[in-house]
Amino acid sequence: MASIVKRQTSKGDTHYLVRYRDPSGKVRNKTFRRAEDARRFASTTEADMVRGAWVDPNAGRVLFRDYAARWVAERTTSRGRKLAPRTVELYRSQLAKHIEPTFGDVDLSKITVAAVRSWHSQLVGRGHPTAAAKCYRLLRAILATAVEDDLILKNPCTIKGAGVERSGERPVATADQVWDLADEIDDHLRAFILVGAFAGLRFSEAAGLQRRHVDLLHRTITVEHQLERVSKATAEHLGMDTVGFGPPKSDAGYRTLAIPAPLVPELERHLGIYAAPGPDGLVFVGPLGAPLSRGNFTHQWKPARIAAGLPAGFRYHDLRHTHMTAAAESGASTKELMRRLGQSSPAAALRYQHATDRRDVEIADAVGATLRRRSDDRRAGQGA
């Protein structure tokens, strides 16, 4: 039980000392100027200890910057794996650019709901809504762990919907645009474009393909890993090379996919001319034989995209959208789309099952044809 002792200072001021034992048995004291505040603190502290919700008031005196660095270093995925190097790089960048300038030198216990709301509002106001959503999710995750570590009582990230990215519909290429893009880009990247559209691989998955992953006889591509590139600073921080192989984004990313027939001769030609030698040789390499880099690829991509008549915002990843939209329109189920996507959650697959205008017309015509046949059959029977 907490006790309250009334005390008089040498200057004649009255203070109220609240004395209590924390769950470990340590005696703690806190002084108040008003008796009402002392009684409120005593009763709240007792209630928190009874509920098991008491938090050491000194525990949160940890700079956010220090705790965030430790959080990134110790964080694991839902499968218990260490964060991928690219994810570490992304988190470190988000912290340095958008979060630590505001909260880096603030104690965890001093980060308030109002402070988080103000920070988020300013980030959105500077024209970074997507970055604001990503950084809010990161801040929320870090502070949620601080709650689990009993460093703070509750998470101050309470803004509804702040972590949701409201990006518009991604563009989809037509069949002609896919082939025009492949025709316009440098020849050593032609098959790389077609793999994005015909197999729906991510950039890093396609860039990480080795000869042994491509089986043209059985028309399959196996995704076993992805090519990872990180900055020199991140590589030094993690003690790794700047380029290497890493696991797919999730366990579902390990997959063997059937590839459409038109892709087979394109890959056969590419393997005969451009791929690195040996079963472990990279299928797609740069002009000098090095692993593909996004920077060099972008220099080739932009003029080809313009020549193919694709919009300015069209990215390589949109070839994956193009592939999955075509698969959904073919009637692929959610599970089938998830498998091709390499996704463990149906959320992404469901995005591709929206009804396009063309598909909606096809459905309407099919329904109309079915109903018309039944009606015609009935009338024909009556006439007889």
Results as ranks from 00 to 15, higher is better:
residue 7 R to Y: 08
residue 33 R to H: 09
residue 42 A to Y: 08
residue 44 T to L: 10
residue 47 A to D: 10
residue 56 D to R: 08
residue 59 A to F: 11
residue 63 L to F: 12
residue 64 F to A: 02
residue 71 W to E: 07
residue 72 V to M: 02
residue 74 E to P: 04
residue 77 T to E: 06
residue 84 A to F: 02
residue 87 T to P: 13
residue 90 L to I: 11
residue 93 S to R: 15
residue 93 S to N: 12
residue 94 Q to P: 01
residue 96 A to I: 10
residue 98 H to L: 09
residue 98 H to D: 14
residue 99 I to V: 15
residue 102 T to A: 03
residue 103 F to G: 00
residue 107 D to Y: 06
residue 108 L to Q: 13
residue 117 R to K: 09
residue 131 A to Y: 03
residue 131 A to S: 07
residue 135 C to R: 10
residue 142 I to G: 00
residue 145 T to H: 15
residue 146 A to T: 05
residue 152 I to K: 00
residue 158 T to F: 01
residue 161 G to T: 02
residue 164 V to N: 07
residue 175 A to D: 13
residue 177 Q to C: 01
residue 180 D to T: 09
residue 184 E to S: 11
residue 184 E to N: 12
residue 185 I to F: 07
residue 192 F to T: 07
residue 194 L to C: 04
residue 195 V to N: 05
residue 195 V to L: 06
residue 197 A to H: 03
residue 200 G to S: 03
residue 203 F to G: 01
residue 204 S to T: 09
residue 212 R to F: 11
residue 214 V to W: 14
residue 218 H to F: 12
residue 220 T to R: 04
residue 224 E to D: 14
residue 241 D to Q: 09
residue 260 P to Y: 05
residue 260 P to D: 07
residue 262 P to S: 02
residue 273 I to C: 03
residue 275 A to P: 04
residue 276 A to V: 07
residue 284 F to M: 09
residue 290 A to N: 11
residue 294 R to L: 10
residue 297 F to G: 05
residue 311 P to A: 03
residue 311 P to R: 11
residue 313 G to K: 00
residue 313 G to H: 09
residue 315 R to D: 15
residue 319 L to H: 02
residue 320 R to L: 12
residue 322 T to V: 02
residue 323 H to A: 14
residue 325 T to E: 15
residue 327 A to F: 04
residue 331 G to A: 07
residue 334 T to C: 09
residue 338 M to A: 04
residue 343 Q to D: 14
residue 347 A to N: 06
residue 353 Q to C: 04
residue 358 R to K: 15
residue 364 A to Y: 08
residue 369 A to F: 13
residue 371 L to D: 06
residue 373 R to K: 09
residue 377 D to G: 02
residue 377 D to F: 00
residue 381 G to W: 05
residue 383 G to H: 11
residue 383 G to K: 15
